[in-house]
Design a protein around this nucleic acid. Structure first.
Lengths: 249, 249
DNA sequence: CGGCAAATTGAAGTATTTCAACGTCGGTGG
DNA sequence: CCACCGACGTTGAAATACTTCAATTTGCCG
């Protein structure tokens, strides 16, 4: 928790950096220094945060909202390859260029640290460097989770996997409420079109899949972007049973 | 390749560590120390190298062959979420457990470093630590590439993307020969069943997709596991045009 | 209230899965 | 040496799922 004290350079008080999981082991002192070199930026939904191929001079941490990472294809169309939630970091530590472009999927705020001071801080605080590493590994983990979900052959299964991922891996940051006995309420953070793009399907297919799951009683569509999961085990089964490949050995 | 020389602790001389891209900036001296703490292990195709959930006490570097990383699903079936080629590393730096299990997709050899000595070496050599970080980032990159490929709706497109990935990202390590003017010869490192598993399709669909691409003259099937790419641009178009999503704004 | 974007629905065409059968290759054992 | 077997790849045909195009509904904002 960044406290206000006379004369100290707190340009980013209340960023909530202490809340970020991968900063948990970083001493309060270092967090203060971090807060001192950070500038907050706001983005409206749809705005571009960083462009593929550019070499940003900041390391950024998502404070609020959701960003989407996307790759640009040969003919200019773009494909979503991941989402950034609160606490996730992006940017370049080594001056290298970004491999994905980043846009705000909702109104969002990020904390931007200038690269050089940040690197200095990393060198001085092993816990911070460790944290960055942890974050990187967790992103790799998530990317592999996405892969496993994307490889499910049927759209209904991929959608089930998507909802489960929202509950489990993103549960802490995405708006998920639990009502016990396998019932949850999930706020879907991106539009149907974005879901379709992410899950490798058309918006129509996504819509049909939602309603098919709803007809089975596995979910309820409270609003297009607010889903109630009525039977999480049935959902998990849905995600699994598409995967009929027997790589057992 | 291991040469015996009196007295010097070269238990892994000729691992070819110096060849590994992410070790390029590591001084020869450190490489020698690395070689001193490494032990080589061999695996037959199909053997399990590491199991999901286990906490391996080694950091390993693939020296020869290809490993596949796979996640275990609820009912015990497994899903491939990536391949490890020569030079790739896996294992746990912090005693954490593996999120994927690892099996040999072909006969393979790895260089195993005990964790503690390796960590000591990393602390002593910033270039080594940097290299590990670079490797991690490149894995994240590849995982995102896989995501983009997996999200292509048609099997033919995903297969085209797979072949292109083999040429570009894995070109240096996978057996790819170039004959100029867009013609290549690619050795497919995994079985049809594994390709199907990785690409989210059935083996039959993969087979049909190969032959469809061959009928179009875009590739030639020299052997089931040896593909000649006759027109790489047509392949790229194939991979792109499935992606008809207009996220242009 | 009109207009626009997002979500949904319907119907037809296409692609993929599924189940079953067949061919090929490499190894094993008679 | 040859027959047999199993793993792997391929092919065919029917059922299913998805995409595509078009039209309609819904919700939101000016």
């Amino acid at each position: 928790m960044v406290r206000e004290r006379g004369g100290i350079l707190h340009s980013c008080v209340g960023c909530g950096l202490a809340q970020v999981p991968w900063l948990a082991n970083v001493p309060a002192e270092t967090l203060q220094e971090l807060a001192a070199i950070c500038r907050r930026k706001s983005f409206r939904a749809g705005e571009t945060v960083a462009r593929e191929g550019e070499a940003p001079d900041r390391i950024c941490c998502v404070v609020k909202g959701i960003l989407r990472m996307q790759k640009t294809l040969g003919d200019g169309r773009q494909h979503i390859v991941g989402l950034l939630f609160e606490g996730d970091i992006f940017g370049s530590m080594d001056g290298g260029s970004l491999a994905v472009s980043i846009e705000a999927a909702s109104d969002a705020e990020v904390c931007a640290f200038q690269r050089e001071p940040f690197k200095t801080l990393v060198l001085r605080s092993p816990a911070l460097g460790q944290g960055v590493l942890v974050n990187l590994r967790s992103e790799l983990e998530r990317a592999r989770d996405w892969m496993a979900i994307l490889a499910i052959p049927k759209v209904r299964g991929r959608l089930a996997g998507f909802l489960l991922a929202l509950c489990s891996r993103f549960g802490g940051v995405s708006a998920v409420k639990s009502f016990g006995h396998g019932t949850f309420e999930v706020k879907i953070p991106i539009s149907r079109a974005d879901q379709a793009n992410l899950l490798g399907a058309r918006p129509e297919s996504i819509s049909r899949a939602y309603h098919a799951l709803a007809d089975d009683g596995k979910i309820a569509i409270l609003r297009p972007d607010l889903i109630e999961i009525r039977n999480i085990e049935a959902l998990a089964a849905e995600a699994d049973e598409g995967e009929m490949d027997a790589r057992d050995r």
